[in-house]
């Protein structure tokens, strides 16, 4: 039992906690339908002699096989946090997906990690609409070996990554960056944050000094 002087503090804490807990219910969250899958579930592509498994449990809103490509919508694995779309096909190889991370609203990268058995071909598409180039992508083998574009993988115009002839733990990452080239901008736009902060600190010092001098008199 806390001493009496702590009880108001507890009441205050309780109000805040209650507010935080109630807040979600004030702002409604809709229920959703999902398809759950287990590591034992196989998504096979019979015509290409390929199959896809997931290393861990997960769920998706839909999983459809079209043109020998599995299209997963709203896919999330239990070791990840956000849902995303993935189109994947595998030719003459069996793959086990270990990680999938979608590009959330503010996320700047998305990736797929899988273990490939058999030196076949894997075709991966994250559903990116904007134009990308190979510099925005990274493909690694066994997490340590960086594969150069054109050697082991290549990027198609529709942002599909084709990985060929690789066996092992493969990671395909796409990075989303803003336009890095702002060297053409005027100086004040290139350094607007620093200049703004410079103004803020100058004004702060001047006002604080003014107050200090004024109150000393």
């Amino acid at each position: 039992m806390l001493p009496p002087e702590y009880r108001p503090a507890q009441v205050g804490i309780a109000i805040i906690i209650l507010g935080i807990v109630v807040l979600p219910f004030l702002l409604s969250v809709q229920a959703q339908n999902t398809i759950n899958f287990l590591p034992t579930d196989t998504f096979s592509i019979p015509e290409l002699d390929g199959s896809i498994n997931f290393a861990i449990n997960g769920s998706c809103r839909s999983a459809v096989l079209e043109n020998n490509t599995w299209i997963f919508r709203g896919l999330v694995l239990n070791n990840s946090q956000t849902r995303g779309n993935l189109q994947i096909s595998t030719d003459n190889s069996n793959i086990t997906i270990t990680d999938f991370r979608s590009n959330s609203a503010f996320g700047r990268s998305q990736y797929l990690r899988y273990i490939s058995e058999g030196q076949g071909v894997q075709i991966i598409n994250f559903g990116i609409n904007s134009t990308t180039n190979a510099a925005d992508w990274m493909v690694t083998l066994n997490r340590t070996q960086f594969l150069t574009a054109g050697e082991g993988w290549y990027l198609q115009r529709d942002n599909t990554v084709v990985v060929n002839g690789q066996t092992g733990n493969i990671t395909v990452i796409h990075y989303t960056y803003d336009d890095p080239n702002n060297s053409n901008l005027p100086f004040y736009e290139q350094h607007s944050v620093a200049l703004t902060i410079g103004v803020v600190i100058t004004v702060t010092i001047l006002v604080a000094a003014l107050i200090s001098i004024k109150t000393r008199r």
């Binding site: 979600p24 946090q81 959330s104 609203a105 503010f106």
Partner: peptide, 20 residues
């Protein structure tokens, strides 16, 4: 808890620190 971020409230958010 702040949005709009197009994600369910109090659901696990994006995996990178900068998300949100």
């Amino acid at each position: 808890i702040l949005g709009p971020f197009n994600v369910p409230l109090f659901q696990p958010l994006g995996p990178t620190p900068r998300d949100h």
